[in-house]
Amino acid sequence: MIDVRSLRRLGTSMRDGLRGLRQAPLVFLMSVSTMAAGLLMLSAYLLVVQNMRTVLETAGADLTLVAFLTPGEPDEAVVADLAARFGGIDSVDSVTFVSRERALSRLREDLGSEATILEDMRENPLPASFEIQLIPEARTPEGVRRVASRLAEADGVDDVRYGEAWVEGYARVLRALEWIGAGFGGCLMLVLAVIVAGTVRLAVYARSDEIQIQRLVGAGGLFVRLPFYLEGALQGATGAGTALLLLWLAFSSALPSAGEAVQLLLGRAAPSFFGVTEIIALILLGAGLGVGGSVLSLVYIEESP
């Protein structure tokens, strides 16, 4: 049960944490710099992965599955039946029938001045097709593959195309990067927590007299530990904030001169920085790492008399 006195104790304990920072600003600064360096690496990596994911999403939005019908003029009843079948698939957003004539006229438009090469043809070589677009949730490599196989099963469908090699290859690279990021990020976070633990331990040694006296006059374990947790959280959050600021500066200053490389990686997708949610999440991650480090270094305080 939290009563007024406990809340006041909490307030005092937090003030003690800020007092600790004022007493040893250099240690705080060193720890923040180390945290910032580590989190800069991590957030830069996450930014690359985030942008690559955007590419996949952009590709997904443009993605059209094309189901080519067997050569020859399709029967109207077959077309109506297939349109109804394809439209009934859960993940399908829209179904458009492209007749052989429409396909040919599109080809003419695409060829422009070179369309004359088509004049020698005695008959239209293009098959009729259905163009199918998916709902946003289904625009994943797995979702696309699932719908493609349903389309291919239908009678009257000769072939299904959706640029599968590119989509799946890119998704594989992205997945690998995410896994590498998880491993690399995990190791980095552990290292950062240990660094904070070391810094907090220094602060504990520096303030061991104070801790001893507080305990002698009746301070509970939480009252003693809370200032250090707060200190760790502030170190982590400030480190993360600094890392994000540096990354943003690098992002906005390097982007204009790295246009071609970025385009090669991202294609038509515009490079973007973290949104508010990601920024808050990274700052909270920094704070969490700081608290984790403090917990690591303070375990023994509970046992001392």
């Binding site: 007024v4 006195r5 809340l7 006041r8 104790r9 005092t12 006296i213 507080q214 006059v217 009252f223």
Partner: peptide, 8 residues
């Protein structure tokens, strides 16, 4: 300190 810890 004593009173702060007592939550006064």
């Amino acid at each position: 300190v004593t009173l702060e810890i007592a939550g006064a």
